[in-house]
Design a protein around this nucleic acid. Structure first.
Lengths: 207, 207
DNA sequence: CGAAGTATCGAACAGTGTTAGGTGAGATGT
DNA sequence: ACATCTCACCTAACACTGTTCGATACTTCG
């Protein structure tokens, strides 16, 4: 019923526009997205884009949704139950790597930076769903207070945004990651993974 | 020489423009600053502003400088030497309060949000000076590793930005502040203020 | 008073997102 | 096969933006 080839063609063009939008943003910055330039890159004029997206913000919204889905996929390797401290480490690193690998995407997803842009309810639901999943994951490790969830998000976004803003391409804050995870886990009551007979300090894995 | 009344008048108008710019940004958002509207509010037309500021970004730059100076004054109650854990707490709270009390100013000072705007070298020096002062303050408390300075800034900005973005006007992240400061101080080796009966981590050892 | 300096203005330029209305091609119905 | 309809795309235009140019008043000074 909705398999009409005409719809397939439309969806294909939509994807093409979105891909060009990402490329343009990577080149000119997130706010440097110009509809006339975007249209030129896909062989159109600016007004023609409006038959595929209701507005410029609708394009940002679709990009936002894409980014959320990508993040979900990037974090999907984590189990839903019985998270260990090692999982916390791996999760933090995966999130950090996801963010720093594409600052423009990070800016769109996590910084409220575009003047006037707000994700639509359906798109925003992707973000809250992801946060709900994180909530259950933390709960499975015995971290059930919202205080701890809030602390976890604040720490992770704090590190990543400092990394992106003040040392792009470097590792000045990336190197703090493991220590911070241990700090959080100690505070939140996530037991160390290795059955060490010396629980005084963090078990330093030779890396 | 620089006391000519004509210069005083110019400086006065400059201040008037800046005040109107802050007010306009508070109403329309940081990016909602329109030169024509700004000029209208001070009884001018847009081109006249260019005899007081070289560009719109120059206005943002002056606002950035004002914000940095205000932050310096807001944090000036802290001593330069021998910071106690109580000082860390008070400093964190003061910074947090400064940021959340004016999200627009926070956005200008700490988020790289305005497309294309970068503070001028002289203005940026205000920021680096402030960070240097923080560095010496931390060092006076035995916290001399750059890792710890970076961790401190990441934690504070992480908490504040989460507070502003996800719970404006509330206290969801504000309530975490004291715990986080203690967490950091324990990790960085800042001794507790009270002479506790538990001296496990009180030794101020430099590594 | 004339001259110099200062403050402000209108008009215009090159952009921006967005809307209205029109054109031509291809699919569809009879 | 012809008429109809849908879809994709266009041009023109609007209201806005920051910014520049050149001219016009007003102030101050020699």
């Amino acid at each position: 019923m909705s398999e009409r080839p005409i719809d397939r063609r439309r969806a294909e063009t939509r994807r093409e526009i979105l891909a060009a939008a990402w490329e343009l943003c990577h080149q000119e910055g997130l706010a440097g997205l110009s509809l006339r330039e975007l249209a030129r890159r896909v062989g159109m004029r600016a007004p023609s884009l409006y038959s595929y997206f209701a507005s410029k913000d609708a394009i940002y919204d679709a990009m936002f949704a894409e980014g959320q889905i990508e993040l979900g996929e990037h974090m999907s390797f984590l189990p839903d139950d019985d998270l260990t401290r090692e999982d916390f480490r791996a999760g933090a690193q995966a999130f950090f790597e996801f963010c720093t690998s594409d600052p423009v995407r990070y800016q769109l997803l996590f910084q409220r930076t575009l003047p006037g842009f707000e994700p639509s309810p359906e798109t925003y639901a992707l973000a809250t769903d992801r946060l709900e999943r994180l909530e259950t994951q933390l709960a499975s490790a015995g971290v059930s207070h919202r205080r701890h969830l809030d602390l976890w998000t604040a720490i992770l976004t704090g590190l990543t945004s400092q990394q992106i803003s003040n040392d792009p391409g470097g590792d000045r804050w990336a190197r703090l990651l493991d220590d911070v995870v241990d700090l959080f886990c100690d505070h939140a009551g996530v037991p160390p993974t290795e059955p060490s007979k010396n629980p005084r300090t963090t078990t330093r894995s030779r890396k």
